[in-house]
Design a protein around this nucleic acid. Sequence first.
DNA 1: CCAGACCTAATTTTCGAAAATCATACCGTT
DNA 2: AACGGTATGATTTTCGAAAATTAGGTCTGG
Lengths: 233, 233
Amino acid sequence: MPDSAIRPRKEFGKTIAADITHRLREEIIACALAPGEPLRFDVLRERFGASFTTLREALTALAAEGLVDAQEQRGFRVAPVSRQDLIEVTDARVLVEVELIRRSIQRGDDDWEIAVISTLHRLKRIEQRDPEHPLRDPEWKIAHRQFHQALVSACGSATLLAIRAELFDRAERYRHLSANFRPRPRDKAGEHQAIMQAAISRNADLAVQLIEAHIRSTADNVATYAAHLLDTE
Amino acid sequence: MPDSAIRPRKEFGKTIAADITHRLREEIIACALAPGEPLRFDVLRERFGASFTTLREALTALAAEGLVDAQEQRGFRVAPVSRQDLIEVTDARVLVEVELIRRSIQRGDDDWEIAVISTLHRLKRIEQRDPEHPLRDPEWKIAHRQFHQALVSACGSATLLAIRAELFDRAERYRHLSANFRPRPRDKAGEHQAIMQAAISRNADLAVQLIEAHIRSTADNVATYAAHLLDTE
DNA sequence: CCAGACCTAATTTTCGAAAATCATACCGTT
DNA sequence: AACGGTATGATTTTCGAAAATTAGGTCTGG
């Protein structure tokens, strides 16, 4: 990855504000910025090399996504975590994801099947290469995200996909939170494989059941291994 | 604190940006700013009396809510409307609202019942007073919003309530869109009464059925009377 | 010693100028 | 006339100084 000195001021054709929103989002999801941590402008200014107002715009956008907590006249902080919030995010994810899987299975065409199969294939490849700590591998994170994205991509509702994406981000932050304390990842590969097969064979009820179990067991895992981070709030 | 003779620039304790976000949201929902209309800074600056960056922050927040469309490097515009978007918003609302009604009916306590009954009462009072064009009456709009809010308020999930609120706003904009062309409002009072009774008597299945019909028939109404505004996009 | 008013420093929030980018009209060439 | 490049004006985007607000510490009176 390019050094920050070499890195262009902003990504392809986009505004600096949008770029910083993206970078901040990644850092918050990865818990490089800890939950509840104050986001002071001096610090951010130095870290991201942007002005007050540009940073403010990025923080406002992330506040609307639920990753940042805006305290009027008292600045911003990384959205705190809690057991209650984890439960809410999990339940909301199940509600939305189940609906989108059903729609995608009903509406998905050949391209959808190909996307599901190929994104799973890539995910498994990466897991074979280094089965240790998947969440620490940026490539695994991207591949994992793309597989789940592909599963629901044929649902036909940009509105619900946007909501799903926000909930996915918030859930991923909790996964990172517990990643450092989890002794060994469970058998996600097998779960993903089963979900893919249920989806491709158009077995909606089975796919829905597997997805719900997948989401809930991940959340349970977080609740167990990050318990000490969730109760002190 | 300078007690200026002029009216206060903002609501007490809030930032100007938050205040402008609120005012812009109201105007977009009410279609005082037409769908698709470009939001140029000179114009907004004069209308809202704020600087570029403050306005930019407000527009960014509204973009995250789906009421404004940010076109990188080419400014902002009011989010366009379309038949497809109306369908998506309606379906998403049904999905979320049905879930929240179920939870509220299961969990609601005495205070919840009181809130449902009293907000409906107020709504009916306002309708009696002036049964003509409810959407043009700010008081009716607030009362209507508060009744529906009360119905789901006991669901126990701030996360889902926030998602619901965004979808409600987007749907309300469509209602305003058709309000000018609808010959006569249908019998909403009766529908609200029936929903309240089903909720209070803890008949979840009936309440869900009524809510879904309520949402869908409203959307159908919009699709009919605002057809000429939805197809040209 | 405590409560509360006051002052100062730290921090956020807002502003308008300046830089960057986009849209359009103009011009010369094929 | 069609095309492509370029200058020009319009508009957005970014910046850092300045204003506004909060946080924290000090002093005073009871």
